[in-house]
Amino acid sequence: MRLLASLVAFLFFVPAATAHEFWIEPETYTVDPGDPIIAELRVGQDFKGAAQTYFPDRFARFDVKMGETTRAVEGRIGDRPAMTFVPEGEGLAVVIHETKGHTLRYSSRDLFENFVEHKDLGDVLERHAARGLPELEFREAYTRYAKSLVAVGDGVGTDTAVGLHTEIVALTNPYTDDLSDGVGVRVLLDGKPRADAQVEVFARDGDGNVTQSFYRTDAAGEAVIPVGPATEYMVDAVVMEDTGNDDPEAGPVWHSAWANLTFRTP
C-alpha cells in the first residue's frame, strides 16, 4: 500500500515539472461554523489543473491560521480532495501550503526563455550566460508557496505574513471589507517587500470564464487588484534565485519560488 501511495503521488506531481501555477482551490470559500473546509491542491493554468493527493512526503507545511491560532491539516495518504479540515470558531481562515523542493530539466531552450519572459524574471538570461551555464543541459529547483482565504461564519479577520520564503499577503479582507477600490496585496520575499515585481492575476467568474491580467508592485511591494462580484481570483508572483552552484552536474543552478493566493469575492 505504501508503494502504491508513492506511485500515485508521483504521478500526480509530474505535471508540476512543466512549470504551471500551483494553487489551493476550496470547494466553497465561505463555510458555516462547524462545517469543514474542503479544498483541492491543483497544478495547471487558467484555473484548470490536475488535483493533487494528500501526501506528507511532498509538502513541508500544510496549515490553517485563524487569528493567533495555527493548526496542521491532517489527512490520510492518497486523500483527494487533499484537505478536509474543521475549523474552530469563526473568522478568516488562511490556508497555507508549502511544497518540498522539486527539480526539472527544460526540454527546449524556448521553454526556458518563454518562462523567463512570461513571469518577468528580470535579467535571468543575461545572468545565466554570465555564469557560463549551458543553454539547456541544466536543472532548476522549484518550490510552491500557496495560500487561500476562506470565510468561516462572519469571516472577520486579517491576513498576515506567515513566514513563507515568498508569499502574497492580502491587505484587504475580500469577505468583510469594501471592495470598491479593489483588493490590495503585498508580495514578500523572506519577509521583505518585493518592489517592482510582476503580479499575475487570473479571475474566474460564475460562468467559468477566465481572464488574465498583470500588475506591478510599488516600492512597498504592494499592488491593488480591481475586482468584480462573485468572482474567484488567483494571484501569482514568481522569483528566480541563483542557487550558488554553477556546475550543472552538481545540482540545480536556479531556484524558482512561486507565491500564490486564492480568494473569492461575494
Score class of each variant (00 low, 15 high):
E167W: 10
A146V: 12
V116I: 09
P174Q: 09
L136K: 14
F138R: 10
A161E: 15
T160M: 03
L171S: 11
T176A: 14
A151W: 04
A161S: 15
P174V: 06
P134M: 04
G122E: 13
A151V: 02
D181I: 00
A141L: 12
L164H: 10
Y145M: 11
L111I: 06
Y142R: 06
R127A: 10
E126R: 07
Y175T: 11
D159V: 03
T158N: 07
L136G: 04
S148N: 07
E137S: 12
E126D: 13
P134Y: 02
L149I: 08
Y142D: 02
L171M: 15
D123I: 01
F115P: 00
P174I: 11
T143Y: 12
P134W: 03
L164I: 05
A129P: 00
Y175Q: 11
T158K: 15
E113I: 03
I168W: 09
D177H: 09
G122T: 01
V183P: 03
D154I: 03
A151T: 05
L111V: 05
V116A: 00
T176Q: 13
P134I: 03
E113A: 14
D123Q: 11
T176C: 10
T172K: 03
K119T: 01
H118V: 00
K147M: 05
K119C: 04
G182Y: 04
N173Y: 09
L133Q: 08
H165Q: 13
H128R: 04
E126C: 00
T176G: 07
Y145L: 04
L133W: 08
E117W: 02
V150G: 07
E126Y: 00
E126T: 07
D154A: 15
L149M: 04
E135A: 11
H118W: 08
L164W: 02
V150K: 10
F138Y: 15
V124S: 05
D123L: 04
P174L: 10
L136S: 06
L171K: 15
I168T: 11
L179A: 08
E126H: 02
V162S: 04
R127E: 14
A146Y: 01
T166M: 06
L149T: 09
A161T: 06
G184T: 07
V183C: 07
F112R: 06
S148T: 12
L171G: 15
L125V: 12
L149G: 09
E117R: 14
E140L: 02
